[in-house]
Simulated scan of single mutants.
Amino acid sequence: MVARAYKRIAFGVLLLYVLYLAGGIALAATGVLSKVYFFPGWALKAPSHDASAFAPDGPIVRYQSGAALSTAIVPRGAGLLIQTDTLTDPARSTVRCYVNETGTSFTVPLHPRHTVEPSEYPAPAKMLVVSDIEGNFKGLDLLLRTTGVVDSAYRWRFGNGHLVVVGDVFDRGLQVTECLWLLYKLEQEAARAGGKVHFILGNHELMNLTGHYKYVRRKYRRNADSLRLDYAAWYGPETELGRWLRTKNVVEKIGSTLFVHGGISPEVLGLRPTLAALNEQARNRLDAPPARNPAGLAKVLASPQLSPDWYRGLAQQEASAGHVQQVLTQYGVRRMVIGHTPVTEITPLYGGKVVAIDLPHQENTDEQQLMKALWIENGRFYAIRTDTSRREEL
């Protein structure tokens, strides 16, 4: 009798869970909910009903015959103007980025050259770490200003501190280009001050750089049509932002912390690649045609479920504690920081050896005018909020 009663209770709980998921997915599909939680700390983001349209954007800087063309959509009176400038000496040129969301703009000197980023760095005294900005310029602006990384004119004020962006600046939001240019600009200023901007490639960067545009907003398709410049060419190897992005890594070690957008899967770890080899192989995939019969690391990286930019086993705690420790030991670190899989708060996992930081930034910005991020100072990890000066140690 008791066993039968437990079975009925278990069946009832399961039925309620199934009904919850079915209802949640239905509401997400109609736009009532923005995400559906499968269990605490993990949610499925709902597709948006996209009404975005032709709007300010750019600049898009493309190289042709030793010169460069800078094309932008800018406000002009009550309308919009497509503005194209020829940069005869790109290495000494600047472009101006207008941000429609905030009504502000900033000037960006173009890099004279691009070099591939190292895979390992010594630890600075302080780091601000954020992931999954997803085109939310207002939120990024709020976060950087209130934490003292930039001033009101978007100038670097973080000294020798490091700003770490753990992937997914692309897609979902409407200010992707502007976020990219701001990080590009701050990278130069940080270097002059002895600091550093780290841009880790996430799955949405890799998707946009390899021709997968499922999550690109309608605005960008409309803008591409108006510019008569296919979106596929916006971040190609003959563009300034495209060249810059192709110098970035999918995983970096900073001091005793490993930063990776998705995570290190058992399949990747089993091949024991160095960080440099892992990053080189990931970059090689960006412009090379798909191999017919990839093997080894190339084969693993070609599988989204296993690649560092997409693997969710750590965030979902499906990987064993032994695997986590093996990753830390292999790369000589004490902790990993990951994004990609949504959490409601900065969440330590595996006894604090993994820290998940993909927060609902757009919702927090829209509803509460706040941003949350990870702050690392002298090796100690803190959760910070932009509406208070208090830091909560993890």
Rank of each mutant, 00 (worst) to 15 (best):
298 A>M: 12
277 A>N: 14
250 V>F: 05
282 A>F: 06
300 V>R: 10
271 L>S: 09
307 S>D: 13
309 D>L: 04
341 T>N: 15
247 T>G: 06
247 T>W: 03
332 G>M: 00
327 V>Y: 00
274 T>G: 08
260 V>M: 07
288 A>Y: 09
257 T>G: 11
292 R>T: 15
250 V>T: 09
266 P>S: 02
326 Q>M: 04
336 M>F: 08
290 P>C: 09
324 V>Y: 03
284 N>W: 15
332 G>L: 00
329 T>A: 11
276 A>L: 10
333 V>N: 02
255 G>P: 13
338 I>L: 09
282 A>I: 01
256 S>P: 11
288 A>I: 03
313 G>P: 11
325 Q>D: 07
281 Q>N: 15
337 V>P: 14
277 A>Q: 10
326 Q>V: 00
340 H>A: 09
265 S>N: 05
243 R>E: 08
332 G>F: 00
302 A>L: 13
249 N>H: 02
265 S>C: 02
328 L>M: 01
339 G>T: 12
245 L>G: 08
253 K>T: 03
245 L>E: 06
304 P>N: 11
263 G>T: 01
287 D>Q: 12
272 R>E: 04
245 L>I: 04
255 G>I: 04
330 Q>W: 00
335 R>M: 01
289 P>M: 03
274 T>N: 07
278 L>E: 01
293 N>H: 15
326 Q>W: 05
244 W>P: 10
259 F>H: 13
273 P>F: 00
317 Q>A: 15
271 L>Y: 09
264 I>Q: 07
291 A>C: 15
333 V>P: 05
285 R>N: 14
273 P>M: 01
324 V>H: 06
329 T>W: 09
298 A>I: 06
297 L>K: 13
316 Q>S: 14
275 L>W: 06
311 Y>A: 06
269 L>G: 02
294 P>R: 12
297 L>G: 13
338 I>M: 07
301 L>Q: 08
296 G>K: 12
262 G>M: 08
312 R>T: 12
289 P>S: 03
247 T>I: 01
338 I>F: 04
326 Q>K: 12
288 A>W: 05
316 Q>R: 14
325 Q>H: 07
323 H>E: 03
266 P>G: 03
264 I>P: 10
254 I>S: 12
280 E>T: 07
243 R>F: 04
258 L>M: 06
268 V>R: 10
297 L>Q: 11
248 K>V: 00
315 A>N: 14
251 V>W: 12
340 H>M: 08
279 N>A: 01
287 D>K: 13
307 S>L: 05
317 Q>M: 15
267 E>K: 11
336 M>C: 11
328 L>S: 02
280 E>M: 09
326 Q>T: 04
307 S>I: 02
270 G>N: 14
341 T>I: 09
300 V>T: 12
282 A>Y: 04
294 P>A: 07
325 Q>L: 03
339 G>N: 13
339 G>A: 11
269 L>I: 02
338 I>T: 10
263 G>C: 03
330 Q>N: 07
311 Y>E: 05
332 G>V: 00
